[in-house]
Nucleic acid binder design. Structure first.
Length: 278
DNA sequence: GGGTACCTGAAA
DNA sequence: TTTCAGGTACCC
């Protein structure tokens, strides 16, 4: 499910529901998440929900002077979801059962309602920190994401462009879907060394990235199987994908007529138009 | 850099 | 049965 637009969608849906709520406890059911267990949460208020790259950060306020706030960092990885259950535990079955989801790996129980962490493949992670988690790379939706900044990051990189776009220590937020979409929109061959782009190509790449991520966020992300929002809502951006998952179909650019190709780069599928992308 | 591992489920 | 999946971490 989650790249930047999907995570942003979760944060936007969760934030107004969680802001100011009091915590009862965090129930950790999956032994893989045992490290996220914590006893001293009762009575803390949720001070904020934010996105840092693809991570979701919940801030828990201190209860008294001298106590530190703490931060829960959730990474959904491939199949993780956070679901809002308004009437927990009464509606828990409704939230998870209706869609044949596995039982939640963890549940953050609030004074009213709960957040369920559902994650069939169990790749997702939760960890606590005392410090506010910091970005590891440049956020491609932020004001600092300019042609100049992108050019500086790309300089000298020999990695093929599309895998480079997924390096979270450079740009934080692009994943396998949007990396393909962005190179297509910028008309650049995803196999080109990332550092080989001309200034004009970097400009197109930056513009395409901003535009596509903004549109995907507006449509609440891309959903393939089932749902992704905290209420079980479906992301609507899928219909705007131009190349991802479209191997063998004609290139959507009018008059092109070439077939979209699927190749494997660093173990992941890349989709592109061999005629439009140079 | 490239390959593999982590997991489960859906689809071919 | 095999392949694939929106992500990362760890190996040489």
């Amino acid at each position: 499910m989650p790249e930047l637009p999907e995570v942003e969608t979760v944060v936007r849906q969760l934030a107004p529901r969680l802001a100011g709520r009091r915590v009862a406890r965090l129930v950790v059911r999956d032994p893989k998440l045992a490290g996220a267990r914590r006893r001293d949460l009762a009575g803390r208020r949720i001070a904020g929900v934010a996105r840092v790259g693809k991570r979701i950060v919940l801030e828990f306020a201190s209860r008294r002077r001298g106590e530190s706030p703490c931060y829960l960092e959730v990474h959904l990885r491939m199949t993780g979801r956070l679901l809002w259950a308004e009437g927990w535990p009464v509606t828990a079955g409704a939230a998870t059962g209706r869609r044949r989801l596995p039982p939640p790996r963890a549940v953050l129980v609030l004074d009213r309602g709960a957040v369920l962490f559902v994650d069939p493949r169990r790749f997702g992670t939760m960890r606590w920190s005392r410090e506010r988690p910091r970005p590891g790379g440049l956020d491609p939706t932020g004001p600092g994401f300019t042609t100049e900044a992108l050019a500086r990051l790309l300089a000298g990189a020999g990695t093929p462009l599309k895998p480079w776009l997924m390096r979270q220590d450079r740009l934080e937020g692009l994943g396998n879907i949007y990396a393909s979409e962005v190179t297509y929109a910028a008309a650049i061959d995803p196999r080109r060394p990332a550092g080989s782009l001309t200034r004009e190509e970097v400009r197109r790449l930056a513009a395409a990235t901003r535009r596509i991520l903004r549109a995907a966020i507006r449509h609440c992300g891309t959903t393939f199987s089932d749902f992704q929002g905290v209420l079980g809502t479906v992301g609507g951006y899928r219909r705007y994908l131009r190349v991802y998952g479209r191997a063998g179909e004609p290139c959507p650019r009018a008059g092109c007529g070439a077939r979209i190709e699927r190749i494997v780069q660093q173990g992941r599928s890349t989709y592109f138009c061999p005629r439009c992308q140079r």
